[in-house]
Amino acid sequence: MSKIKKKVKTIKIDADKCNGCRACEIVCAGFHSTPKYDIINPARSRIQVITHRLKNIWLPVFAGEYTPAECMGRDIYVIDGKEYEECAFCRATCPSRDLFKEPDSHLPLRCDMCEDDPPQEKPLCVQVCLNDVLIYEEREVEVGEEESVDLAEVGLRSLIDKHGFDTLVDTMVRIAEKG
């Protein structure tokens, strides 16, 4: 397989600096609404700050890939004497929890690093975080060529997993017939 250069976008999360304000959630939800910023709903955000204030836990987590099945086991991390809830660091949209799902449709959400035309200098959550919790970094790596992921396909697959192929086809046909 031929190698290509790929730009890897990274957000470094300095969770110790997070003051728990959730501005990142708000701007993310607004940016991804249509038209932009006309709808604000942090439940639609692709970044969520997992918060247990009295345990001194403020942990921004970005939405990663959709997964149809939950893990066989669970992890609990203890760091610096603080116990993090199971799956705290996991980015997956997963059947085990309601994180990173559209509140109405339950379709999976995924961080797209605020892909935009013209491109944003940095993802919006990074721009809005005035406490430097979220630091944007880009680097180039060489990788094998890969198929681009079709977001519509990911969404449809999650619906197939949830409702079954036949139900989904029937529904699509019915909607198409209604016009």
Binding site: G30, S33, P35, K36, Y37, D38, I39, I40, N41, A43, R44, P103, V128, L130
Partner: peptide, 25 residues
């Protein structure tokens, strides 16, 4: 709550808010 809150002109609102953000900095 997990419902939407709507702004009449969100993009304009953000543009105006940028002044506030800059001043905070």
């Amino acid at each position: 709550g997990t419902k939407n809150l709507y702004l009449a002109n969100g993009a304009k609102f953000m543009e105006q808010l940028q002044e506030v953000t800059d001043y905070i900095k």
